[in-house]
Nucleic acid binder design. Structure first.
Length: 540
RNA sequence: GCGCCCGUAGCUCAGCUGGAUAGAGCGUCGGUCUACGGAACCGAAGGUCAGAGGUUCGAAUCCUCUCGGGCGCGCCA
């Protein structure tokens, strides 16, 4: 895929290199979007960055750079000026802009995509909420984040495997089964049991729940909870490749857990003390050693988790990304330590922490649902604000920031709601393109130079590949939300300033192409977020 | 006490692998106008980037400390 900005950056780099006359240039060089319009179409601090290492005066170097750029870019370059401490501001020709739009259209669906070097097999594990209750808002944020991250990583050329880890072993599962059985018998759940109304529903859905063996009730309850989670998440457009059950780590002979412990033991990473088995995580920067097997002989959750990650590595993944809830951040050190203890490169595991979501409605905290005195569930959230709004609002903020979700705004079907604003721009473009295809070209007219709004919009479209690369590298889908909104704004300005259908033939042609390119980029941006890009919009 | 995250406009948040005059949305105030989709557009007000030092040509961004929030520190999961 040929990108006009890549080409421009390449010319810049080779120009600097020529001026450096053999001396190595280590600085990162590239053009940027200037904040001030008077700073040209593109600006570069290349002279500032390079002159430092070459022992030259930035402004003098910048002067030489403008001359070199003029020679290499020819008529595509309208002007190159030195400003401030040594910035170089560039203005490019209308022809350059026109061919840039062609490049976007020629790339089509691939615009912004990449071929990763090297392409990795990436396992993204997310949500993984315990199957002891419905998925709540926190899990919903985790779900859309993990999913969008997966979309991004795929788009930049990696092979992504989405996985949900089902904690279907341990005391909590016994408690679930006991609670269901109690309800089936018309009793209150036991101490430490689950109180939600969904337990009563489960009791009704499991035939013979009152009399079946307890662990059979547990097993069936987990099955139903997992199916329920799968259904809810599918509504959210989040689909997993694999639902990995913890119990498989305790099955077979030896079990995966036993195998993992054997590796650790063989390498002298673990030891016995106070009748328990400990892992020397302190050798890898943890605060204290951690228990693998309790003195009562049971494995800890940590032991399962180690076996689970060993299993992922055995399955051939180059990179494991775990998306954890904020309450798990205290486990990062020991998990990383365990990977090192198993003898793996620590870089093969990436632990991302999702911060909390607070729901706000009409200025009030709205964390509690009327139903069951419980937290708001994924289903309730979708029923309330819809999938597109839910995904958008949960994705527009950085995952590492505690955020508030304003339900009042999210429900709003107007331009005050950014998700509708972006979708509206897309629908409007579809409408213009349809008319452009149907209606004949109008009377002749005189073409004019490109309007500032047109140039601004083209520049936005050209930024897309680097925005995508940046978002993927930083694991930050929220950047795409921000980008799509800015692009929609740039389109709105263009729409205001530049008639398309009634423009003179050549100009009309360019503007239709610009509309098509914009629609394509908006659709792709929304797709990366898992938000729909409608051809037309109707109010509810 | 220790560790992690966070303090940026009235509110919610971007920006933080250093660059020119710190941005967006909402809210507020004022304006355009019935349009190639009005679910629109334009403008304005609003900031000691928590504070103090340091690093350098340049710091919201990097380092140190202080203050103020959130979370986590179990042979639970």
């Amino acid at each position: 895929m040929s990108s006009p900005l890549d080409d421009l950056n390449a010319v810049l780099a080779s120009s600097v290199e020529a001026l450096a006359a053999g001396q190595p240039v280590t600085a990162k060089l590239g053009v940027e979007r200037p904040k001030q319009p008077e700073h040209g179409d593109f600006a570069t601090n290349a002279a500032l960055a390079a002159a430092k290492g070459l022992g030259e005066q930035p402004r003098e170097f910048a002067e030489k750079l403008t001359e070199e750029l003029g020679r290499r870019l020819g008529p595509a370059l309208v002007s190159a000026e030195v400003a401030g401490p040594g910035f170089v501001n560039l203005v490019l020709s209308d022809d350059w802009y026109s061919s840039a739009v062609d490049a976007v259209l020629a790339a089509g669906d691939a615009w912004g995509s990449a071929v990763a070097d090297p392409p990795l097999q990436i396992n993204v594990e997310f949500v993984s909420a315990n199957p002891t209750g419905p998925v709540h808002v926190g899990g919903t944020r985790n779900a859309v984040y993990g999913d969008a991250l997966g979309r991004l990583l795929s788009f930049v050329g990696h092979k992504v495997h989405r996985e949900y880890y089902v904690n279907d072993a341990g005391s909590q599962i016994s408690a679930l089964g006991a609670s269901v059985q109690a309800r089936a018998r018309g009793e209150e759940p036991p101490d430490g049991g689950y109180q939600g109304e969904y337990i009563i529903a489960l009791a009704g859905d499991i035939e013979g729940a009152a009399d079946l063996p307890a662990d059979e009730v547990s097993r069936l309850a987990v099955e139903l909870m997992v199916a329920d989670a799968e259904r809810s998440l599918a509504r959210l457009r989040v689909v997993f490749d694999d639902w990995f059950h913890e119990t498989t780590l305790h099955a077979g002979s030896p079990t995966p857990v036993e195998k993992a412990l054997a590796i650790l033991d063989g390498d002298g990473r673990s030891y016995r003390s106070d009748d328990a088995l400990w892992l020397r995580t302190t050798e890898f920067d943890d605060d204290k050693d951690r228990v693998l097997e309790r003195s009562n002989g049971e494995h800890t959750y940590f032991a399962s988790d180690i076996a689970y990650h060993q299993d992922k590595i055995d399955r051939g993944f180059d990179l494991m990304i775990d998306v954890w809830g904020a309450d798990h951040h205290g486990y990062i050190k020991r998990m990383e330590a365990s990977i090192a203890a198993l003898g793996h490169d620590p870089a093969c595991l990436e632990l991302l922490i999702m911060q909390l979501v607070h729901l706000v409605d009409s200025g009030e905290r709205a964390q509690m649902s009327k139903r069951a005195g419980d937290f708001v569930t994924l289903d309730e959230l979708i029923d309330d604000i819809g999938v597109d709004a839910a995904r958008w609002f949960l994705l527009e903020r950085s995952h590492e920031t505690t955020m508030e979700l304003d339900l009042t705004l999210a429900r709003e079907q107007s331009a005050e709601n950014p998700v509708y604003y972006v979708q509206y721009a897309h629908a409007r473009i579809a409408s213009i393109l349809a008319r452009g295809a149907e209606e004949p070209s109008p009377a002749e007219g005189e073409d004019e130079p490109l309007h500032a709004s047109e140039r601004e919009l083209v520049r936005r479209l050209l930024e897309f590949p680097s925005e995508v690369a940046d978002a993927a590298e930083r694991r930050s889908p929220h950047r795409i939300a921000d980008y799509s909104h800015k692009t929609a704004q740039a389109f709105s300005a263009f729409y205001r300033d530049c008639p398309v259908i009634d423009a003179p033939p050549a100009q009309r042609d360019f503007r239709l192409r610009l509309c098509a390119a914009t629609g394509q980029v908006l659709a792709r941006s929304l797709d990366l977020l898992g938000v729909s890009a409608p051809q037309s919009m109707t109010r509810d």
